[in-house]
């Protein structure tokens, strides 16, 4: 169950799969070319479905570092979300 997998706060499976891809790219120039040419296909083959059609792989060099800024997520708040209640109960304790 997904909840149990992330109880400790880390979705390690994503990191582990990416590490396997990094290792394969370091070990094999042909794999690296395949990754750069068809990143979605390689990620999917490794069980990392990116969920989008456009994926770019950038290789760091001795003079260039790439940082990824995650997309801004949506706000969440109790005062808005409680209006979606589908139960027939009141909160008591």
């Amino acid at each position: 169950m997904a909840d149990e997998e992330t109880t400790e706060g880390v979705d390690k499976s994503v990191i582990d799969k990416w590490m396997q891809i990094v290792r394969a790219a370091w070990e094999s120039d042909s794999f690296k070319k395949m990754l750069l040419d068809n990143p979605v296909g390689v990620l999917q083959a490794a069980g990392m479905d990116p969920g989008v059609a456009n994926v770019q792989i950038h290789e760091d060099t001795a003079t260039t570092r790439h940082f990824v800024l995650p997309a801004k997520p949506g706000d969440v708040g109790v005062d808005e979300a409680h209006q979606s209640l589908m139960s027939d109960a009141n909160p008591g304790f």
Binding site: D11, V14, I15, K17, W18, M19, M48, P50, G51, V68, P70, K72, P73, G74, D75, V76
Partner: peptide, 8 residues
């Protein structure tokens, strides 16, 4: 925020 980390 409710975030879904997708990038490793």
């Amino acid at each position: 925020w409710l975030h879904h980390p997708a990038n490793p």
